Simulated scan of single mutants.
Amino acid sequence: MLQETAPRYRGHKSYSYLEPHRDYRIFELADEVGRVPDFDLGLSDAQRQRVDRLLAENVAISLHEHPVILPKDVSELRAYNRTARQHTAYAGLARSGLAAVFDNFMAGASCVTSENGWKWNDLIYALGMRLSDVAKQDYVVLATSLADIYAAKRNGQLALVAGLECCTPIENELDRIDILYGFGVRQLGIAYSQSNMLGGGLSEYADGGLTHLGRRAVDRMNRLGIAIDISHSGDRTSLEVIEASQVPVFITHAGARAVWNTPRMKPDEVIRACAERGGVIGIEAAPHTTLSEAHPSHSLDSVMDHFTYLVDLVGIDHVSFGPDTMFGDHVGVHQTYANNYAHDARPVPDHPRVPYVAGMENPAEAINSVAGWLVAHDYSDDEIVKVIGGNTIRVLEQVW
């Protein structure tokens, strides 16, 4: 299902302009291609050609990813992240079919100065180190506007939109939002599961809602032109962010709680409110999240059960995909950082554990699988174009 390597990609490997072992520590990294068996949707040649055409002719956008390469030995993950030199998966992205990717870095796991993550200094390490490497090649380009995304598409490049999953590192310093904007960040989450000074996180038993500082932060993001994400916010906080924002907001990576009843998924009330104000929900695919009773073993089929439900609930104009994937053992990431974050003790439906999500294993595979599934299920070209990027563009026209 993968695309051919983009012609503009010339083989750059992260930090190759420096001297390994002297300037930075070397880790054996996971394979960008072929780490798991190829996923076969059983498409005919004509269907495969249609997928290729749709991705070639249109701006395909992943609303939420972490397109870094993890160590092959996941036990080295903390040591790898402590160096702040996470490697961008250029070769993998060059086969993705994407025109743009919302890259949320690994700020919560970049434990350079603290084992607990989400510190301001660690965030700057994660952001600055990755973007310094991006600046040394010309296939992936930092995008801060829709014009940048369109230009990247025309030039055969991939646009990277810098985003962060939460505002926890700003602490009570509102001007840090401006600083992040100056660094090129164009999307920010409110809270990452745990509550912070802006609002409630989804893992908390009680959600106090959007704080006074949180309302000021929403206003500041609106004024600057930063897209707001409520994926990891609690239900009350999510509703109050939607109401407070003067422009639509994103749920960049989640699913429907009516399909899989866990706090990580969004209830119908939040999804409807987001859509009624013009927003978009990107469907999540990180391991053991967007499951369904019909497909409790996590796979593309599970993910698409959330898609069909959401389309029926709010219409196809408000649904996209934010797979939330990376190159390497994503299950191992969750296990490594399991103790870093508070976990909701409310019961989760029983389900099989999988080593990876078949069909949605990494950013190179995900949008191809989604487009292939939509083609196989006879969605129109117009509908597919909306889902793979058009809906996101409509929101960004209002936000940016």
Rank of each mutant, 00 (worst) to 15 (best):
D133A: 14
A162H: 03
A159S: 02
R130M: 15
K153D: 00
C167Y: 05
A135V: 10
M129V: 15
A147I: 04
D148Q: 02
A151F: 01
A152I: 01
V161N: 04
R186V: 12
K136P: 02
A159P: 01
I170F: 09
V140K: 01
Y181I: 01
A191M: 07
L198V: 05
V185H: 12
V161Y: 05
S193M: 15
L146K: 04
R154P: 00
R186M: 13
A147Q: 13
L146A: 09
V141C: 08
R154Y: 00
L164F: 15
M197N: 14
R130K: 13
R186G: 10
G182Q: 14
R130Q: 14
S132F: 13
G156H: 03
F183Y: 15
Y150S: 03
A159R: 00
N155R: 13
Q137N: 03
D133F: 08
S132C: 11
L158V: 09
I177N: 03
I149E: 00
A135F: 13
V185S: 05
I170E: 12
V140Q: 06
E171V: 00
R154F: 00
R176Q: 11
V140E: 03
G184K: 09
L180W: 12
V141E: 03
Y192L: 09
K153A: 01
L180C: 05
A147W: 02
V140T: 13
A191F: 06
A135T: 08
D175H: 10
Q194R: 09
K153V: 00
E171Y: 08
D175L: 04
L127W: 10
Y150R: 12
L131T: 07
S145G: 07
V185N: 06
G189L: 10
I149M: 03
I179R: 10
P169A: 09
C167M: 15
A159K: 04
V134G: 01
D148P: 00
D138Y: 05
N196C: 09
N172G: 09
A151M: 02
Q194P: 07
D148M: 01
M129Q: 10
L160R: 08
L180E: 09
G184V: 10
I177E: 04
T168S: 11
I179T: 12
A191G: 08
E165F: 04
K153H: 05
V134I: 15
A147V: 07
C166H: 08
G189F: 11
D178N: 14
M197R: 14
L198I: 12
I149H: 02
V134H: 06
G156D: 01
R154M: 00
G184H: 09
Y181S: 15
T144A: 08
C166M: 08
L180Q: 11
Q194S: 15
A151H: 04
V140L: 15
Q194Y: 07
L164E: 14
S132P: 01
A162T: 11
E165P: 02
L158F: 05
A147K: 09
N172E: 11
G163H: 14
G200M: 13
L160G: 04
R154I: 00
L127D: 08
V140I: 15
G200C: 12
L198R: 04
T168E: 13
I177A: 03
I190T: 11
L127A: 06
G182E: 11
A135L: 12
